[in-house]
């Protein structure tokens, strides 16, 4: 079982970061260092989740579908860096929207990750 504490922390911080980036988008600004730090915090928690998941796998615990689970881990790892780079390439409100979407997607993927582990859905 993946620890729900880290997952919940990721979901909360990711949604907060998404809300921040959304406000930036609506104010028609590009993201600044603050939003990038917020995304970095989420990414750090994501890394913790990945390490914990790998430890669980190494201990012999298995999700319902191992391939899918690992696929989700890879996706979650990649999303925020990719969104961050794209957001910096597009230094307008549209870059901020990309960051918003990236943060929201991480939150959704964590929910899915837990479902894949327990085999629900």
């Amino acid at each position: 079982m993946t620890p729900h504490g880290v997952g919940t922390a990721i979901i909360v911080t990711a949604l907060l970061a998404a809300a921040w980036c959304l406000v930036t988008t609506l104010r028609k600004h590009a993201i600044g260092i603050g939003e990038l730090i917020a995304m970095g915090v989420v990414q750090a928690l994501v890394m913790a989740q990945i390490v914990i998941s790998v430890v669980h796998l190494a201990q012999g615990q298995r999700p319902q579908s191992l391939v899918t689970f690992v696929g989700y881990l890879v996706a979650i790892f990649v999303i925020l860096p990719a969104a961050g780079v794209l957001a910096r390439l597009e230094p307008t409100r549209w870059g901020a929207l990309i960051a918003t979407i990236g943060c929201a997607v991480v939150a959704v993927l964590i929910v899915r990750l837990n479902q894949v582990w327990t085999g629900v859905g």
Partner: peptide, 16 residues
Amino acid sequence: LDRPAQKPDGPGDTAS
């Protein structure tokens, strides 16, 4: 603003 090197879109700039 505390954001370096950014160019906020003008309020009327819809294409941005």
